[in-house]
Structures are given as structure tokens and as C-alpha cells.
Design a protein around this nucleic acid. Structure first.
Lengths: 228, 228
DNA sequence: TCACCAACTGACCATCGGTCAGTTAATGAC
DNA sequence: GTCATTAACTGACCGATGGTCAGTTGGTGA
């Protein structure tokens, strides 16, 4: 009864074909200008068939993001093998990230758009959770590097891992967003890389450097003490 | 002869009324779910009339952003009067920014959406330029603060103003984006504020700290202390 | 040869952004 | 008071598009 099996495989292939077609189109034109009809044509199916595989245009968009994030995650699997310092690992990660999400520049847009509009996208709850989980897994790599840095005595053991993870991630994605907006096409990636690298190195130096004087987080932290 | 004048004023009022109505609706539901018809109803006009004042739904959306950015800009006009350190000014600016753009949390979304999708929005070229210019004006406030810090000897005169401006802006907006995505509603703003403040202080410390050798033993102090 | 059924189709529907020919009403000339 | 002018406004209409579903197709096994 290899029939069932073959059917399953063929169905999976169709699905992949749709995603491939959609990917090409979305990366070419963005979200709105791509019609479901055009995706269907490119995948050599009818519009109706698309909806046998996906529930909405938004879901296709999200699935593309999902599989790309997973690809990225695989790509950084061997990051720790190199035996570099944690600082260099952070910069290295950032560079890979920039290459990956800006290689197809629309991909970064998809990522941010999703992050900003998750709620309005009304996707099936499960898919939503899946993307959030996958994204978090990626973000947590930053935290792992910090932990690694603490372990090898590079960073102070008292550092706040979560907070610094958020700072690095924010810095990285914020700088990319800014440059997509203002930067001219030419040499954009180069500038992003330089800015991100220097930003990360500054944060790290600041993390290591002694806190100057009485000012600083102390003042604010005093009021914001909020143990759960 | 006050006729011409009165007409002009009334027209301006209508325009404002449309923007007010649209603002309420967009902030309530996001972009797509708001129909032009519903804006018209709320503004007590017909759909057709809306298009006497604006060229597209996107343009309305953008105008809201524009007028809000300008409001923000006025709000920080007196930032320099306080005589604080440049570091504190940066943190202060960030806090005002967070309050402002998260007070109506949709506003931040509008800002980022615009930055990410400027090109696909096909607005009149002039409006586009206007928003870019206004946004840049806001971003450049960060640079001014850095300059102020250099002038008063707080930061090294060799520092790269533009780069650090981009780092701070990126950090600020990236952290906000991240928290809108993952953070639970409760205590979100508080967390954002804490993370941003510490991030900024780290960058500043890193900016001041000697670049020193590859890795420096630390342990002396803890940036981003764990307050959980 | 036929019954079954998963996969597929495309006509159809509802919604919505945007248009435009026609209406309304304020004004000012006579 | 009457009428011509015209800016402001209206809403029926159009085209595009996301999504649906009743019906068709073709491979399979009896």
C-alpha cells in the first residue's frame, strides 16, 4: 500500500511548489501586489487548489517566514565550534543574520511585519505559536553566547542575560530597519554591518566597564524593583 | 471678502475631522480592517468626499503619522534646557519617546510599518519626502545630544556621531518592536523602559571605555544587573 | 467496466478602494 | 425675489481580489 505514502509525498511536493512560487513573487513585489491567482499560476494550479493547502494568503506569507527562520537556525548550528571569544561570536552571529535576512531583502521585511502585526493577521493559533517559538529559539542564541561568555570569564557573572539579549537583538534589528528606511541602496549592507558591529562592541565594553559614579541604573532600578 | 478665508478654514476643519476620525479607527483596529466608508461615517461625510481631501487610504494613515511625529518634536523642544548630562538626556529622550509612541500603541506600529514599507505605499513623492525629512529631524536629536556631550567633555571628541546616533535609535526601536512581539501586555512598558535605559547606559560606557586589548578581565562591576 | 474518492477546477460571491456624473446650497449680481 | 455660478458633496458604480463550493477529473482496485 505505497499508495497512501505516494499521495502524501505528492501533496507535500505541491505544498512546497506553492511556497516556492509564492516566495519568488513576494520577494519581488511585497505582500499586497501579489495575488493568490498569480501564485496559483506560477505553481501551475488553480486558485481554488491553493486553499486546499493553506487557509489564507497571510498563512502562506507566514509559512515562508517560518521555513526561512528554520533554515537560518540550522545555518548557525555550528557557531560554537569555532572556539572564538563570546564577543566575536556575537559579532559573527550578527553578520550571518544580516547576510541571511538581507540577502533577500524582503525577508527582513516579512520578519518585522510579522512581529509588528501578529495579532491582526488572524492565523490559526497553532501556526502563530509555532512562529513565536521558532523566533524565540533564534533570539535565545544570543543569550547562550552571553552565558558562554560568562562561563569563560569574559563577562561578569552578575550580568543580566535576558536584558542584554534583548538589547543586542533590538540593536541589530533596529539598525537594519533604520537603514532600510533612510540608507541609499548602495553600500547599505556594508554600513549596516559596520554600525552593528561597533554597536555590539560598545555594549560589550559597557557591560564589562565599571559603572561610573553614583548615577546609572541604580537610580532607576531603585524605583523599579518589582519582584514577581 | 472673508468668504475665501472662511471657506479655507472650514475645509481645514473638515480635513482635521477626517484625520481625527481615522486616527480613532486605525488605533482601534489597525490598518486593513478600517474601511474608508467607516472613516467617512465617523467624520459625517460620504466616502467620495474623503477623496476630496486625501488621495488614498495610505495617505490618511501617513498624515496621522506625520502630525504625530511633529507633535513629538514639539514635545522635546525644551529638552536641552534642563542642564543635565548628555547621558541623562539620552535616557530622558528615550523615555519620552517610549511614552509617546506607546501611549497609543498603534502609533509605534504605524511608524515602523511606514519605515519598512515606504516604497510599496506609493504616496505622492512630496508627502514621502516630508515624512522622511521629519523623521530624520527627530533622529538627529540624538546626534545633537551626542555633540552636546562631546562639547562638555563627557564623550571623547573622536567619537563617531552618526554611527552612535544610529546605534541608539536602533536599540530603542528594536527593543520596543521585540517587546511588542513577545512581551505580555502586563508591565510591557516598564520592561521596555528598563531595557532601553540599561542598553543606552551600556553603549555610553562602552563609548567612553578604552578600547583596550582584545579581552579584558573584568569582574569589577556588573552591567545590566540581574533584578529579575 | 464500474464505483469510489482525493485532488482539482473555475465560476461565483462579498468586500472594498477608488471614480465620477450629477445634486445641493451658499453667494452675489441684477 | 430670481437666477447663474461654483465649491462642496454624494452615492451608485466599477474593477480587483480574497475566499468558497458545487461539480469535474482521473487514478485505483473490485
Amino acid at each position: 500500500m505505497g499508495l497512501e505514502e505516494r499521495r502524501r509525498r505528492e501533496k507535500e511536493n505541491r505544498r512546497a511548489a506553492i511556497l516556492r512560487a509564492a516566495r519568488k513573487l513576494f520577494f519581488e513585489k511585497g505582500f499586497k501586489p501579489v495575488t493568490v491567482e498569480s501564485i496559483a499560476q506560477k505553481a501551475e494550479l488553480s486558485k481554488g487548489s491553493i486553499y486546499l493547502y493553506f487557509n489564507s494568503k497571510e498563512e502562506i506569507y507566514t509559512q515562508i517566514l517560518l521555513s526561512d527562520i528554520e533554515k537560518f537556525h540550522k545555518g548557525i548550528a555550528d557557531l560554537f565550534r569555532t572556539g572564538e571569544t563570546a564577543s566575536d561570536l556575537l559579532v559573527e552571529l550578527a553578520k550571518i543574520y544580516i547576510n541571511f535576512f538581507l540577502g533577500d531583502k524582503e525577508l527582513f521585511r516579512i520578519l518585522m511585519t510579522f512581529m509588528l502585526h501578529t495579532e491582526h493577521m488572524n492565523l490559526p493559533e497553532e501556526l502563530n505559536r509555532h512562529v513565536v517559538k521558532t523566533t524565540n529559539k533564534t533570539i535565545s542564541v544570543i543569550e547562550k553566547i552571553f552565558q558562554y561568555g560568562v562561563d569563560r570569564g569574559e563577562f561578569p557573572p552578575t550580568m543580566n542575560l535576558r536584558l542584554n539579549r534583548d538589547v543586542i537583538w533590538g540593536l541589530l534589528n533596529g539598525i537594519i530597519s533604520l537603514h532600510l528606511f533612510t540608507g541609499f541602496e548602495a553600500r547599505r549592507e556594508e554600513r549596516i554591518r559596520a554600525t552593528v558591529e561597533e554597536g555590539i562592541r560598545e555594549v560589550i565594553r559597557g557591560l564589562i566597564a565599571p559603572e561610573a559614579g553614583a548615577e546609572g541604573p541604580m537610580k532607576a532600578a531603585a524605583g523599579g524593583r518589582t519582584d514577581r
